[in-house]
Amino acid sequence: MATLVSNGLYETTNREEIKEYLEDIKKKLDDLQLGTKTEHDRKTSQPSDELKIIGSKELKFKELIGEGRIGKVYKAVYNKHAVAVKQFTEESHGPLLAKNLRAEAEKMKKFNAENVVRLFGICTETYSHLLVMEYMSEKDLRSVLDNPSKYNLTWRRRLRMALESASGIYRIHNAEPPMLHRSISSSKFLVDEDLHIKISYCGFSLTRSSARRHESSSKKTTLKYIAPEHLNKISTEYTDKSEAYSYGIVMWEIATLKKPFDGKTDSEVERYVCKQNKKEEIEDPDCPDKFGDLIDRCRDCDPFLRPQFEEIVDTLSSILEKYN
Rank of each mutant, 00 (worst) to 15 (best):
L145P: 08
K224W: 00
G55S: 03
R299L: 03
K219H: 10
R182H: 03
R212K: 14
I197S: 14
D262L: 01
L305A: 12
S216A: 11
A211E: 14
R212E: 15
L320H: 05
I312L: 03
S246R: 01
A84P: 01
H129W: 05
K62A: 10
L34D: 14
E268D: 02
I226S: 10
N174Q: 06
F291P: 06
V83S: 07
K279W: 07
P307R: 09
N277R: 10
E311M: 09
T126V: 12
K275E: 03
C274L: 01
P288L: 01
E67S: 10
A255Y: 07
D31P: 01
C287W: 03
D49L: 04
A175Y: 08
R15D: 12
H81V: 01
N112S: 15
Y272C: 02
S6W: 15
K99V: 04
Y238E: 09
V144E: 11
R160F: 02
S48C: 12
L96H: 13
K188S: 13
E321W: 09
N152G: 03
D31E: 09
G94L: 09
E311Y: 06
E321S: 13
I65P: 07
L320P: 07
N14W: 08
T315C: 02
S6D: 15
D262G: 01
D31K: 09
S318C: 02
D289L: 06
Y74D: 15
E23P: 14
L223R: 09
M1Y: 14
E16S: 14
L223G: 05
C287R: 01
G121Q: 03
V273W: 01
E91T: 12
K264D: 06
L22T: 10
